[in-house]
């Protein structure tokens, strides 16, 4: 069988020469190469030259393989699979981080008895309430009732001062009196008694200038 050959055919099939010499080309490619060898002396010379080189490489390769084969223990390949399987079985299976994470998450969301779940929720709620009560009781007190409308909270010290202020504004006279010392208060009361001129007709002469009795004054002074 003859083909119309060209230089481009030669170039294309040149690259198939190694496979052709090793018997690895398809029947069609082999036929093409043989036709080229018949029609082109250059192509044939190239195939012959490469054939010699490949023979040398082949002989080396065979020598090398023989040397390697000689050092192989008997039955090596039949034992190889068993050795690998033994190593696989002895080795604990490695767990990957993602697998571990997913198993933890699965355990969280796995169905649990409803009683256990509600107990856990109730316990959690109680814990939160206790915690918030402790925090509120220790650190913050609602402001004096008259200030509640301002929706603000103050500390204990601020609250006491505010209460005092409220009392002072409501009972100015008493608060001034309460702020005096014992002697000052006594002097004030005596001055007060002495300066009063109004004498009700129902009162006797002895008591016309007194507003408070002795007991009342002493009682009043106890509070100071």
């Amino acid at each position: 069988m003859r083909f119309n050959m060209s230089n481009s055919d030669e170039n294309i099939y040149r690259y198939d020469i190694p496979d052709y010499l090793l018997g690895k080309t398809s029947p069609e490619t082999s036929t093409m190469i043989e036709s080229l060898m018949a029609s082109s002396p250059e192509f044939k010379a190239e195939v012959d030259e490469l054939s010699k080189t490949m023979e040398e490489i082949g002989s080396l390769s065979q020598l090398e393989t023989d040397a390697y084969m000689a050092e192989l223990p008997e039955g090596y390949f039949s034992d190889l699979s068993a050795n690998v399987l033994r190593r696989i079985q002895n080795k604990p299976p490695g767990t990957k981080f993602l697998d571990e994470l997913s198993s933890v998450l699965n355990s969280w969301f796995s169905p649990v008895p409803i009683s256990e779940f509600s107990t856990a929720i109730a316990g959690f709620a109680v814990l939160i309430m206790l915690f918030s009560f402790i925090v509120t009781f220790q650190t913050e007190t609602p402001v004096y009732s008259s200030r509640l409308s301002e929706e603000s909270f103050t500390s204990y010290e601020e609250n006491t001062a505010l209460a005092t202020l409220d009392f002072t504004q409501g009972h100015y006279g008493e608060s001034v009196l309460f702020s005096l010392s014992y002697d000052d208060a006594e002097a004030v009361l005596e001055n007060l008694n002495a300066s009063l001129t109004y004498t009700p007709s129902t009162l006797s002469d002895e008591t016309s200038y007194e507003i408070l009795s002795e007991e009342e004054v002493n009682e009043l002074l106890k509070y100071l």
Partner: peptide
């Protein structure tokens, strides 16, 4: 790859 394979043989040949 075919070209690489072929040229590899040719270079070995030239080297020898």
């Amino acid at each position: 790859l075919k070209a690489n394979y072929f040229h590899a043989f040719k270079k070995i040949e030239a080297f020898l």
